[in-house]
């Protein structure tokens, strides 16, 4: 049996990759994908912890996260399309007019 720590380390690595993607990539779609990676890193932690404790709670919450992630992806992609129609670019730096 794979020890819990392995899962946690993997999850941490995935989460870091996702975070880095959010901050470093200059494409909104990639940013969205990075967010999905972060979410799934968390899911992995939940499932692993659930298995470790011998309960199904982790799996249940993971289902919730997945549904929400699906909805979020739908809305996010719709927003990206709308934004693209507006500015003809997907760089987040182009969308800074909502300030001061």
């Amino acid at each position: 049996m794979v020890p819990l720590n392995y899962y946690l380390v993997l999850s941490g690595v995935l989460f870091s990759i996702g975070t880095a993607g959010v901050f470093l990539r200059r494409n909104l779609i990639t940013v969205l994908l990075s967010v999905e990676i972060m979410l799934n890193a968390v899911n992995l932690t939940f499932v692993a912890a659930g298995r470790y404790h011998g309960t199904v709670d982790g799996q249940i919450i993971t289902f919730f996260v997945m549904t929400v992630a699906a909805a979020e992806a739908a809305v996010g992609l719709a927003l990206v399309i709308a934004l693209f129609r507006h500015r003809e670019t997907l760089s987040p730096d182009a969308y800074t007019s909502l300030k001061w």
Partner: peptide
């Protein structure tokens, strides 16, 4: 108000 840059990534960074 200078903190409100309009850049989503800056907000995300501060959140993080």
């Amino acid at each position: 108000r200078r903190l409100q840059t309009g850049s989503v990534r800056a907000y995300a960074a501060s959140l993080f």
